[in-house]
Amino acid sequence: MKRLQTAAIALLLLPSAAMAATSPWVETPGGDVRLVVLPADAGGAARAMLDIRLHDGWKTYWRDPGGSGIPPSITVSGARLTAIGFPAPHRLGDDANHYIGYDAPVRLPMTLGGAAGGPVTATVFLGVCKDICIPVQADLTVETGGEGFTNPLEETAISAAEATLPGAAGDGFRPLDGRWSADGKTISVRFEAPAGAAPADVFLSGAPFEFGAAGPVRRDGDAFVADVPVLHRPKAFDLEKNPILLTLRAGEKTMEAPLKVE
Rank of each mutant, 00 (worst) to 15 (best):
R3N: 12
L11F: 13
P15L: 08
P15C: 12
A18M: 10
T22Y: 12
P24R: 01
W25H: 15
V26S: 08
E27W: 06
R34I: 09
L35N: 11
V36M: 07
A46F: 13
D51S: 08
I52Q: 07
R53K: 12
L54W: 03
G57R: 02
K59P: 00
Y61G: 00
R63N: 12
D64C: 05
P71S: 05
V76S: 04
A88M: 12
A88I: 07
D94Q: 02
D103P: 08
P105T: 11
V106P: 04
R107G: 15
V120P: 01
V124E: 04
F125D: 09
V128A: 02
C129Y: 13
K130S: 15
I134A: 14
G146F: 08
G146S: 06
P152R: 04
G170F: 09
G172V: 04
P175D: 15
G178T: 04
R179L: 04
S181A: 15
G184C: 04
T186M: 14
S188F: 06
A195D: 10
A198Q: 15
A200D: 01
D201T: 04
L204I: 07
P208Q: 07
E210H: 12
A213P: 13
G215K: 01
V217Q: 00
D220W: 11
G221A: 04
V228E: 09
R233T: 01
L239P: 10
N242H: 11
T247G: 11
G251T: 04
E252N: 10
E252D: 13
K253C: 09
M255R: 00
L259G: 14
L259C: 11
